[in-house]
Design a protein around this nucleic acid. Sequence first.
DNA 1: CCCATATTTGAGATGTATCTCATTTTTGAG
DNA 2: CTCAAAAATGAGATACATCTCAAATATGGG
Lengths: 215, 215
Amino acid sequence: MRTILSATSHSLFQEQTLDRGKRERTRSALLDSAISVFASKGFEATRITDITEHAGVANGTFYNYYRDKQEILNDVAIGLAVEIVRRINDELADTINAIVRVVTATARVLEVARQEPEWIDVLLSSIPIVPELQSQVVRYLRQDLQMGLEQGYFHIEVDLLLVNQMLALLSTAILLDRKISKETTRRTCEAHLRLLGLPPVRAARQVEKALSGLQ
Amino acid sequence: MRTILSATSHSLFQEQTLDRGKRERTRSALLDSAISVFASKGFEATRITDITEHAGVANGTFYNYYRDKQEILNDVAIGLAVEIVRRINDELADTINAIVRVVTATARVLEVARQEPEWIDVLLSSIPIVPELQSQVVRYLRQDLQMGLEQGYFHIEVDLLLVNQMLALLSTAILLDRKISKETTRRTCEAHLRLLGLPPVRAARQVEKALSGLQ
DNA sequence: CCCATATTTGAGATGTATCTCATTTTTGAG
DNA sequence: CTCAAAAATGAGATACATCTCAAATATGGG
């Protein structure tokens, strides 16, 4: 057992395929079930049967769609990443200040973690296992960091180490406080800005300002 | 497969028990083998037989000492933690400046990671699995952080989140650059001080000073 | 060197998960 | 509604890791 919170996540894949044929609906059921089971038992401990039982299909059905656990994890992780990045990107379309972008993105990821704990559970634990994922996340984050450098806010080398440091701080917040209090969000945003080279007082002020601007 | 570097670690447990009876020598062989195998295949993927083969004993021998994998992992992790903490504590006995303590401890952990990659591999991946470990690490780190607060250097709340943030930055460094370049060490120390609330320029200066003082 | 005790051994019993495939059931286009 | 194609089924073959234990072997104090 891994997650403490009850599983209240909405289905991600089912919703996208209610109209398409039977095949796509069954695939979505498997994908959504995989999210739940991976989140509650962890990837290693999950058996194919756990996924099929949760999806309400027979064991053999799994093999009509995927060869093994790893293969369905890939689909799940990419699907989650695409959805979460899409949401945040939409919101940030008009934001040009790099500090605000970083704080907002951080806060939004934590917001998703609060509302869909299973998604983030699976996504974060997939990063080391699904190589394709890491490179996507890195490319996405790097843009904002580069922007912050050009705007003169950040004092740091933008590279793989930095991106992974930021991801690690995110993971820490989620693992330690699954309900994601406002306090946890604030401190994680501050940690990000401190890491990026803002003096602590300035970091606090900027986080304060940016977070109050979010609804 | 997990580690890329070849396994060049020294035995930790064998050395301590060369004189004691057969029983303790076999136990040590199992413990040292467990380190190697956990480091190379990861805990989940390790089978009892991997450990006994590596130790050059029969499969059944394992069960004369441990009930299962988890039980030997506990012994391994605690043994590693005790050894590493002992080394660093010895060196820091006379250091009273909290900044120097934090930078030195960080640098030394990374030094161990470079020289005994298997140790740190296993230790870090054990932290989530061996509860006893986490509380020990937290208690140990908290002292230095408290000291830094009292000396007026740090601007932060010292709690579980902070300690885990620092551990996460350490893990990130090790996972991303297993050979642990000077650069990685410097940046990880700076990240720690930035996180603790030192302004970036000051953090850089302090790290520079403290690291140059280490042989 | 002796021998009671401690330790090791490894074949096999047990349990469990994966994966296959011949058969059954469902689907949805015409 | 019909029916060929698509999809689902689940029993069982296969594989493999755990754990046991009676027998074999090694140990080290006297």
